[in-house]
Write a protein that binds this DNA or RNA. Sequence first.
RNA 1: GCGGGCGUGGCGGAAUGGUAGACGCCGGGGACUUAAAAUCCCCUGAGCUUUGCUCGUGCGGGUUCGAGUCCCGCCGCCCGUACCA
Length: 842
Amino acid sequence: MTESRFDPSVADGRWQRAWTEAGTFTADSDSEKPKSYILEMFPYPSGRIHMGHVRNYTMGDVLARYQKMRGFEVLHPMGWDAFGMPAENAAMEKGVHPGGWTRQNIAQMKAQLQRIGFALDWTREFATCDPEYYGHEQALFLDLFAAGLVYRKESTVNWDPVDMTVLANEQVIDGKGWRSGAEVEKRKLNQWFLKITDFADDLLAGLGTLESWPEKVRLMQENWIGKSQGLEFSFDLSDGGKLPVYSTRPDTIFGASFCAIAADHPIAQGLAGDPAVAAFIDQCKKGATTAAALETAEKLGYRTPITAKHPFTGADLPVFIANFVLMEYGTGAVMGVPGHDQRDFEFATRYDLPIMRVVATDPARADEPFKGEAEAGDGVIVNSDFLDGMSVEDAKQAVITRAESGGWGEGRTVWRLRDWGVSRQRYWGTPIPFIHCDTCGVVPVPKDQLPVTLPEDVSFDIPGNPLERHPTWKHVDCPACGAAARRETDTLDTFVDSSWYFLRFASQPADKPFDPEEVAKWLPVQHYIGGVEHAILHLLYARFWTRALAHMGQIAVAEPFAALFTQGMVTHETYSRIDTERGVPVFFAPEEVDRTSAGATLIADNAVVEVGRIIKMSKSKKNVVDPDAIIARHGADAVRWFMLSDSPPERDLPWSDAGIEGCARFVQRLWRVVANNPHCDINAEPNRALEKLMHRTIAGVANDIEHLQFNKAVARIYEFTNAIERSHASADQMAAIAVLPRLISPMMPHLAEEAWARMGGEGLMADAPWPTVDPALLIDDEVTIAIQHMGKLRDTVTAPKGADKDTLEALALASANLQRSVDGAAIRKIIVVPDRLVNIVT
RNA sequence: GCGGGCGUGGCGGAAUGGUAGACGCCGGGGACUUAAAAUCCCCUGAGCUUUGCUCGUGCGGGUUCGAGUCCCGCCGCCCGUACCA
């Protein structure tokens, strides 16, 4: 290492090896120190680490290293969310085995992570596709089954009628299968479910204890769980039958002008003898199953000959079969109130049904016409007999009370949250440990026969589930009666894998999923960091599993993640040209493009390419920057520094070459400050301002890190470095330089170690304590006071901190600028905010 | 469609209801050098009648002595929407 240049290509590896050899980041469960569990959402091993991972793990790393300096025993593990569809897609496209492909990706990505110098405890690494891991998962699934939290029921999937296979939602594009292009159908399958709804109330209540979660995430989960009070009642039908419906808006019951039932509702099925009805029911089966697709699809209905009698007015309401009503939700039938539900409004408009106002902003506007859309908001009830004049809330209760006393309906709490369907008709996942026997029914695999492992000899040359068509795998004897039986061929949703991995990191016993004592030592996770895209599903499922395991007495943890942080994406501009033949854009990678301030040209032909919007890095848009290439060029510390600079961590971070170059320059600049360490001139004037700034910086950076405001910590370190360089060779400057390595250590650990070693620091920087702060030096003795006239700045003056109101008032009135602005006008009021400002009101 | 979030100079952003633009990037000027790179110093929201003034935080209103911040109504973009992870 020369004096003038920090060489990451040498230093990075040196310190990474030193940490590994010393076991610096191996968590000691038996340590006396207070414990801290720092966790980032583990990655799917897609092939390469991308910048989003680097950003996520750098944030966790800063916290882990900082907390270690603060005297905590830190657990900062890493593993692999290794089951999932991309491995099967790779198998289909490249003819490789999903397992081999995944293992290779893991090896590659692990090496990449190690080159970034993360303070990870690799001794606890595992992949969810390890048979040990998924074997324990199968055991837990059997425990849940025994506890009554697992059951089977019919539910709808996307069916590709050409490939004869189930499609994931992302494999359905505009209602068509992504490979076959065939119109997707809804098809029912018998599938496995987890009873997350048993915990709906508790999951909702628990949100109130998660003070260190972002408010937005708690709100999203609250709305997702969706607790509401409503009325379930039955309409008497013209054919003598009854139609049970559920509504969250019984207050609008007088505005009901039709009923709608699902295509697979028994009443609809009963009418299917009519070819027109049958044709409509068939039509309803078309299309994808997602909520977005259902909600935005055209609302279609078929008017049946049946009518329903309104319980209050006695009016006959037409009963429609409708494509937007689903049998799986509620009773599979709804009452339509077009005036106060947008979906019903569109439906009524299309089928020319009455649209009645039963809620208005005030009673005088009871007959105001609608302005082309439903009014779902609050108001007073009108045109509703005994409900008139009531608030929406009161009217709901009044209708429920009336229905209950009349015996034709009852109030019910319902949840938007549905039970969690965990069946997947796919190979690369955890086999569901059950066996189907013709005489015994569905039989659990005995625990001593776990894990049920995946067969290796599978092919992906035709669509569908390889487990289903494997020649031998599914043929087993029934564990109960010994007769020939069949294995369950569905595998578990990969969200199951990620619902308990954080427990397995605490310890990895061979004979059980986790050790409750170790779980008690480390859990809950102190900081959990990941993308906001997981705000609902993953986080809710993990909270559910934690509750279910606690319910069964296996752990004593209420919430798995004490604090949550959702970081933003790494983005990059896109470069494209329109393909003139096909009319679609063709994208180019950043390294294929020569970018100047004026625009961009393609290096290959030196002609212009269009510079597009700055969006999330993705392979399809080719706007990705490979971390390896950047590390090879600038070193790990520059990349880490860039990940923390400028953008607040919860927002998107636009990648820029100029930005990373600036970071690389700053790494070198820091090195010069340390390496050109001047000799102290004991005769030099002490630089008390620098000393104060040093203490303020130490305290400020600590506070910023604790609040994950890394961009602010970065700004402070820039300011501190600027101040050091501008100061003269005094003892204070020496002290400031000496503290620098420790300040930057969580963010630029390689440079910090190198500097620490050079300055004669003892042991590894990573083991050193955080510098101490003298609180006395954090207090200012002088402050700048703003002088305003009518709220506009006219002058600033300095005053002693804590100066009284009269002093500040006098200072303000003495200002020439203020006097010119006031221009002799009568002063009506003077507002003094101590240590901040004086505002003269005329 | 529904739920949630975000919007500040050329760019990323800073700002307990109290001096809008800290810090960084880009750009401009200068020093050093035969020259370049590197480095260092200075300037850098717009406009004006420039001791200073006006405008300015997506758009339109409102509350307040004072609004980027609080309230109401919009617009745009992003995330989720239960089988992508």
